[in-house]
């Protein structure tokens, strides 16, 4: 089985769990694959910016992220499931974001 087939199977598996009724077409499979690669590569490139803080920290984090992201593929179907239109999900993330922002600005600025 080629790599592409195994990825499509994996996507189908996850979509079955998340009760999606849409068929897995060639187009949607390649779109998910492209999204996946975009996500991983942009996160890794963004992590390189940590070099401004500490270069060793950057190397460790980039390697760790790389391993973690590759191990967790496919991420996109899961991410899509998290970012659905259910209000409970939305408000959970909104209040989480509020708490994080306040904590970040209250402690982050004073102690760093």
């Amino acid at each position: 089985m080629s790599l592409y087939d195994s990825i499509v199977n994996k996507i189908r598996e996850i979509q079955e769990i998340s009760v999606e009724k849409e068929p897995v077409t060639n187009l949607s499979a390649s779109a998910i694959l492209a999204a996946e690669i975009t996500l991983i590569s942009s996160i890794l490139i963004a992590a390189i910016m940590l070099r401004n803080i500490n270069i060793i920290l950057m190397i460790v984090i980039v390697l760790a992220l790389f391993v973690a992201l590759i191990a967790a593929t496919p991420l996109m179907p899961r991410l899509k499931k998290e970012q659905n239109d259910s209000f409970n999900n939305m408000i959970f993330y909104v209040i989480l974001a509020l708490a994080l922002i306040l904590a970040l600005f209250y402690w982050g600025v004073r102690n760093v």
Binding site: A31, T38, K80, V109, V112
Partner: peptide, 28 residues
Amino acid sequence: FIPLAKIFIIVISLLAMILGITMALMQT
């Protein structure tokens, strides 16, 4: 005067770009 403010703008913009564009790919 808060360095974190600019960093925060960049981080949240990156997040918006990555999440927005990858989610756009998934839509029907």
